[in-house]
Simulated scan of single mutants.
Amino acid sequence: MTDALPDSLIPYDEIVQEALRAVVGRVLGEVERSGGLPGDHHFYITFKTSAPGVDLPKHLTERFPDEMTIVLQNKFWDLKVFEERFEVGLSFNQIPARLVIPFAAVTGFVDPAVNFALQFQAQGDTGAPEHDDAENDVPGIVTSEDGSNVVTVDFGRKK
């Protein structure tokens, strides 16, 4: 008798990923409805820049050809949340830009104000999911030297 688990005919991983993305959409929808972030809440949202449906200015896709992290804190505008995507205005080196980001492209969502973090695989990504049974650390956050809304986030895990 073997201890190997049978392959599931139910796509649990996909269902969980979809549910996590719904959390991000709901949170952003609350911010859109209320007209701003409550209290000290602010978000770091990491996404795949080359994912289908992502729409960024050319200078940003050239600078971040794979992945980037944006900050929604003090200086963002025109947040619009739809079922499959969100749109937001941000400034990069004092140049305004409109970003369109499908939830399927999002790989990380962090609200450091309350020690909340989600990390998931970009849809269509064939790599193995990066998870284990350990708790998430609060990501280390390093702001960009050029003053833009882009940061480096290390989604490290406790071992």
Rank of each mutant, 00 (worst) to 15 (best):
A4L: 13
D55Y: 13
M68L: 15
D13M: 03
A4T: 08
L118T: 04
V27Q: 10
P52T: 08
T49P: 00
E30G: 03
G140W: 00
T61P: 00
Y44F: 14
K58T: 09
K159W: 04
D125Q: 05
Q17H: 15
V23D: 15
T126V: 09
K48L: 14
R33G: 05
V138D: 05
T143F: 14
G140I: 05
Q94N: 15
D111V: 03
L99P: 01
F64R: 00
G147Y: 00
I15A: 01
D132M: 04
D111H: 06
P129C: 04
R21F: 05
R21K: 07
R63C: 02
D7W: 14
P96Q: 02
E18R: 14
E130M: 11
L79W: 06
V27Y: 14
R33L: 10
D133L: 03
Q17V: 10
D146I: 02
N149I: 02
N149Q: 15
L118G: 04
V100K: 05
P96A: 13
F116Q: 06
L9S: 07
D132G: 11
I101N: 05
G147K: 00
V142L: 10
A22E: 06
A128C: 03
D133G: 12
R98A: 07
M68A: 06
Y12I: 15
F43I: 14
E32I: 13
N74I: 15
L72Y: 13
P102V: 01
F76K: 00
S34T: 08
K48H: 14
V138K: 12
P129L: 10
G108Y: 11
F82A: 03
H41R: 07
T143K: 12
V81S: 01
T152M: 07
D133V: 04
S91W: 01
D13L: 04
P112W: 11
I10T: 15
V114T: 10
L90C: 02
G140Q: 12
I95V: 12
P102H: 04
Q17I: 09
V71T: 11
E67C: 08
D66M: 01
G147S: 05
T69M: 02
I70Y: 00
G89I: 10
K75G: 10
E30S: 09
E14P: 02
I10M: 01
V142I: 07
H42D: 08
E14A: 09
D3F: 13
A113L: 06
G29I: 13
V27D: 14
D66P: 01
P57M: 07
W77T: 15
V54S: 02
L60V: 03
G35A: 07
K80Q: 11
E135D: 13
T46L: 14
F120V: 10
S8E: 10
F76Q: 01
P112K: 09
F120S: 05
D137Q: 13
A105E: 01
V88M: 01
K48E: 10
V31W: 09
L20N: 06
A122N: 04
Q119A: 06
L5N: 12
G147I: 03
L90S: 04
